[in-house]
Structure formats: C-alpha cells, structure tokens
Amino acid sequence: MGEEINEEIVKELMKIKGEARGVHLKNDGDFVLKEKGKEGIEKLERELEKLGCPIKYGEINQFDFYPAGMRIVSLLAIKKTFGWPNEKIEELGTYAMQVSWIIKLFAKYFFSIERTFKEASKIWSKYFTIGEIEVGDYDLSKKYAVLKLKNFNLHPVYCRCLKGVLLGVVRMIVKSEEITCEETECFFRKGNDHKFLIKW
C-alpha cells in the first residue's frame, strides 16, 4: 500500500470499520500548528477539503469518536501537504504522547513498567474501537519488550506514527537517554501482525 492520497483513496479509507478518539486528530493539528503555524493548518485544511474529507482541527472534540479511516486520511494529507518524511510522522507520534491531554487520563498507570504493560490493552481500547495490543516477550533486566498489535491494518503510515507513540510512552515510564523502537514485523510487509521491539 503506497502513501499517495486522492479522493478515491480517501473514500476507501473512510469505509474502514471502527472509530478513533478525536484526540488523534487534535494532536495532528497541534503538531502542525507548532511546526508550520496557523498558515500551515489552513493549508492542510484546504487540502483535506479538496480530498473530500474536510476536517476543522480547531473544532475536533478530543474525547469524541471519529471514523478510524479519518485518522489515516489526516496523516497522509499532512505528509502530502508538507512533504514530510516518515521520521517526521514518528516525531508527531512522540509529540502526541508528550502533550496530549487524554494521555493524562492514563498517567495513573505509568508509575511502573509492569503496570503500564498490564494496562496496555485497556489503554488501547480507549483510543480505538478496533485492534488489540498485547505485551509479548519482555525482560526488565535486559531492558527490552515486544508489543504486538493485532487486527489493526489500516495503513503503513500509522505504523510510523505508532512507533513514535510507543517511544513517547516508554520515555514516560523508564529513565533512559537511549530508547529505541523498531517494527520487527508488519502486516503490510507480509507479517501476520505488527510487532514492535522496544529497548531502553
């Protein structure tokens, strides 16, 4: 699946069943505002309108649920509008974890790695109505963990975004200056699910 976007692709993406919390879209808007200012937001909103999926970032209710496909449309439109590489989408994901208001609702789980891993599935369900996340192999003494994402095959662009999100989460629960996250298995690269190896 490529990263191009047009009205046809948007229509297809909007057909995906499932919903995502508005906080995703709001975080996208905040990041663009930080990087490109008000003019950047206006430019992005014009592009989305052209694509037949008008999103007004300022009017998004971060607690409400929106079509899951809209989450992907927003990311692809951002990439197209500003020509950003995948690393910038990862940064967007990390930023979302650091400044998102809704993440504060989960802060009560972040007081230990074990507790966070234990509550991971619950946390995911608060973001999406589709897909499940589970913690696979992990060893605190060796400082690594594997996270699996199942039944969530929206678009490869979200894999990059999620990588950044996971980096942001781990940064909250471990004290380390060298945290890495790699997608070791991807549905879009002939994998069964998505697997992320996190080291710190």
């Binding site: 930080k34 930023y95 650091q98 400044v99 504060k104 802060a107 972040f110 007081f111 230990s112 940064r171 909250m172 629960i173 471990v174 004290k175």
Partner: peptide, 24 residues
Amino acid sequence: FVSPLGVIFEVNPAFEKAIGYTSY
C-alpha cells in the same frame, strides 16, 4: 507533575517560562 520514577509528565506555562524550555 512527576512520575514516581522521577519523569516529568506535565508542566504548566509558568514552569515553561521560568525554566526557558518548551513543554515538548
């Protein structure tokens, strides 16, 4: 607001202003 591990979760604008860094 700081986690029990000592990681900063949240700062207000006054904190940003005093310390000179952005919340990010």
